[in-house]
């Protein structure tokens, strides 16, 4: 029996889909059987980011309506063994799906796969509720911005009400130089406010833009600092106890010798 992980944030544009695609890929590279689910019904991002757009035939809506079997609706990513995508329908909107239906899909998927990563839409309405319906674990993505942290806090409150208590925090797009100069929120302050299990920092990296446009997750790129961060986070999700490096300005990798253990 696998785990269903919802990737969510409240605020839009903080990197939910990018994180889902990269963590999904990184987990698959760790020889886990992975399926990523796009729960942003009405919009479609995840297939584009993963470069699978041209191969999508069926969507989760087709599965719910009974047009096709769940197995058949999954798109296989040929670059990595055991990585699959369940795309979102663009013809429908978020209210066409009920949390129960989403939950059923997740339950069915986790029978077969080690990790089911659900990419949540922004917001706190039904789209989010659908995405979180079947989740065992939540990953909260936030950027070091006040508004983003505020929304993450709101989402954490809502998840707690839904009795999803197992949560991990990813701080995305951290610019160590700006933290140093006091222009960006310090990760410690964010962790202080949100007070949930901290699972990693992804540094700001131009590679993300390039890879997103190309449809090739950054995780494949061993030169990219963001890709490396995602691979480390995936290992932590998979239960490995590896330290979270403290990112320092002047080093694209972060200063790997100064470890900061939060666990």
């Amino acid at each position: 029996m696998g785990k269903v992980i919802v990737v969510t944030s409240g605020k839009g544009g903080v990197g939910k889909s990018t994180s889902t695609a990269n963590l999904g890929t990184a987990l698959a590279l760790l020889n886990q059987r992975v399926v990523v689910v796009d729960a942003d019904i009405g919009l479609r991002n995840l297939d584009v980011i993963m470069g699978l757009e041209s191969r999508v035939v069926y969507t989760s809506m087709d599965v719910i309506e009974g047009t096709c079997d769940l197995d058949k609706a999954l798109v296989k990513d040929r670059r990595t063994k055991d990585l699959h995508l369940l795309a979102a329908s663009q013809k429908n909107n978020k209210n066409d799906i009920q949390p129960e239906q989403m939950k059923k899909i997740c339950l069915e998927l986790k029978e077969e796969y080690d990790y089911v990563l659900v990419d949540s839409p922004a917001g706190i309405e039904q789209g989010f509720r659908n995405a979180a319906a079947g989740a065992d674990v939540a990953i909260i993505v936030t950027t070091p911005e006040v508004a983003s942290v505020r929304d993450a806090d709101r989402i954490i409150g809502l998840l707690m009400n839904m009795e999803i208590d197992d949560m991990g925090l990813i701080i995305n797009r951290l610019a160590p130089k700006m933290v140093e100069s006091g222009d960006m929120m310090n990760p410690d302050d964010i962790i202080d406010i949100l007070s949930i299990n901290f699972i990693g920092v992804v540094p700001e990296d131009k590679e993300i833009v390039i890879s997103t446009n190309r449809g090739l997750p950054t995780t494949y790129n061993h030169q990219s600092s963001a890709g490396q961060a995602y691979r480390r986070i995936a290992r932590r999700i998979d239960g490995e106890d590896i330290p979270i490096p403290e990112f320092k300005p002047g080093s694209w990798l972060g200063n790997l010798f100064k470890f900061n253990s939060f666990k």
Binding site: R150, D151, D153, R154, I156, G157, M160, S195
Partner: peptide
């Protein structure tokens, strides 16, 4: 007996 989060 718990932390109050944004919106609460």
């Amino acid at each position: 007996r718990h932390t109050l989060r944004s919106g609460q």
